[in-house]
Design a protein around this nucleic acid. Structure first.
Lengths: 298, 298
DNA sequence: CTGAAAGCGCTAACAA
DNA sequence: TTGTTAGCGCTTTCAG
């Protein structure tokens, strides 16, 4: 008859199949590092693309407590609104994950988690390699006294970056100088002050590796205040190409992260878990790339 | 019995009710202005919050063509995967919107659309007011020869900003000087060149209003190259507080947009359409606010 | 007011 | 192969 106007009712289909044909992406709005992060967008886009290409919809949920202490995530799962979940590490709680493992509910962590590291699948940026490459490059350009400025060591990615920094120095045959490792937890003023302090010392660094753009901004400000010239006297590399690395003066060389690839991987692994009922766990690290600009010698 | 473990099956519930209890947010990944935009995140968060609070899930879909020329949006609607849609203006196509209007399918536009302006509900930032306030402020601080640099006049929001600029000048009793209106479609080099050119003329502006952070960056670079001092000799205000306004030297005064409020409004209007079957159309403008930093006199 | 049963539109199992 | 039917778990209607 009028086949032209027929569209299957997905509500009935989902019901009959006992499947929602949707994957959920959990965001943790409290965690500035994920949600407000500009490049998180590219991961979302990648996840959505993989989902659509495989007949799944993408559902976005903020992790929050609902009434009767059942979280928004649990609701999603128990009411069968999603067939699988992508979770940021900050939402990995023992109670929740134990339930998931018991039920064999498919999930993948977007970022290396601290907890359940082996019992879950996860995809992360290769932070260790990122630091190592940066150090290797700085050393090859003649910088020898390389400082590392980062936020706080509670985060696993910070620990990995720090480890990569140390490895990089070791591989280059350089000594690790604890004074060059500057941890400035959540205090923007400190980035500046600490950099000024170490540059005023008797043995100032000749390069800085920074863990994010904001840190790099304050470090650069301090370098300029102390009248050092970048990149001639001091080299700089920072993690992340966004939001401001390219706009700084000089434009900063960065450790760039392919967040599209990150999202693509996560979504593909989740799909495998959902469709092939693949219970084996995968741990994937996405390589970083250096983008060289004017904050390092060439 | 073991009520403790009971969770209603939303698949069955949705099916029985003929409703997906989901709203869809369409993104246009081709349009850099929406999706890759950092502050778009806050709108998404707001929409998700309103949705959850009202028992709806949020589904994200990129606008793309599928097989048999049925778009991802149409699929969503015809297969009843969503009860309503939030659409960016760039996805407003006559064929699609006519179908929606025929079916009385609930949708709201996130941004003032060019087409179907009266036949649809939409929420936008008050771009006109934003420019007007900026001009008013600049004038009150003694700036008199105010230039406006923007991207391209195809965008309605650009037209509104330009109109606000002109209104602001009129209200201040200043003449509109067409030479001070610089349109530089999609050409980053041009921002710089055009600014240098006008600053080299016989009657250079003493203030710039810029339509986005990127433009402001290049304009400021040109101002510095021409050895003018901001804010003493030249004042600057730009639209948008992200990503770099705060990091520039000097930190820029901006026209700030409450993107959370934007998302909240859009979601609330959509909810009304869905639940109260409210067919009347609303057109809402969210006020902007000036954030004063060091690029304008005080 | 409480409890039984029909029906939503698809899928899958089964019969022809 | 093709056509028929039971059943998914809710909501809603209708009878008790």
């Amino acid at each position: 008859m009028e086949e032209l106007h027929y569209h299957p009712n997905s509500l009935a289909r989902n019901f009959a199949n006992g499947s929602s044909y949707a994957m959920g992406l959990v965001i943790d709005a409290k965690d500035e590092n994920t949600f407000s992060n500009a490049f998180f967008n590219r991961s979302v886009f990648a996840i959505e693309t993989v989902a659509q290409n495989n007949g799944y919809n993408l559902l976005i949920v903020n992790d929050r407590d609902g009434i009767d202490s059942i979280s928004s995530i649990e609701k999603l799962v128990f009411e069968r609104k999603v067939d699988g979940l992508i979770l940021p590490p900050s939402t990995i709680k023992p109670k929740l994950i134990k339930k998931f493992l018991e039920l064999e509910f498919p999930f993948v962590v977007l970022g290396e988690p601290k907890l359940f590291k082996t019992e879950s699948s996860w995809v992360d940026v290769n932070n260790k390699q990122g630091s190592e490459n940066a150090i290797e490059h700085l050393v090859s350009k003649g910088y020898k006294r390389i400082a590392y400025v980062y936020d706080e060591k509670n985060n696993l990615f910070e620990q990995n970056r720090l480890e990569g920094y140390k490895n990089g120095l070791k591989k280059a045959g350089l000594k690790i100088n604890d004074e060059y490792i500057i941890e400035t937890p959540r205090d923007k003023e400190k980035y500046y002050e600490e950099t000024v302090k170490i540059l005023s010392g008797s043995n100032p660094p000749d390069a800085f590796l920074c863990s994010n753009n904001d840190i790099a901004f304050h470090v650069l400000k301090a370098i300029k205040a102390k009248q050092f010239i970048v990149p001639d006297q001091i080299g700089m590399i920072t993690f992340d190409n966004y939001p401001i690395a390219e706009y700084m003066d000089p434009p900063l060389s960065v450790i760039d992260v392919d967040t599209y690839a990150l999202g693509e991987q996560v979504a593909n692994i989740l799909l495998q878990k959902i469709e092939r009922n693949n219970s084996s766990n995968q741990h994937t690290l996405i390589s970083t790339k250096l983008i060289l600009r004017e904050s390092t010698n060439d």
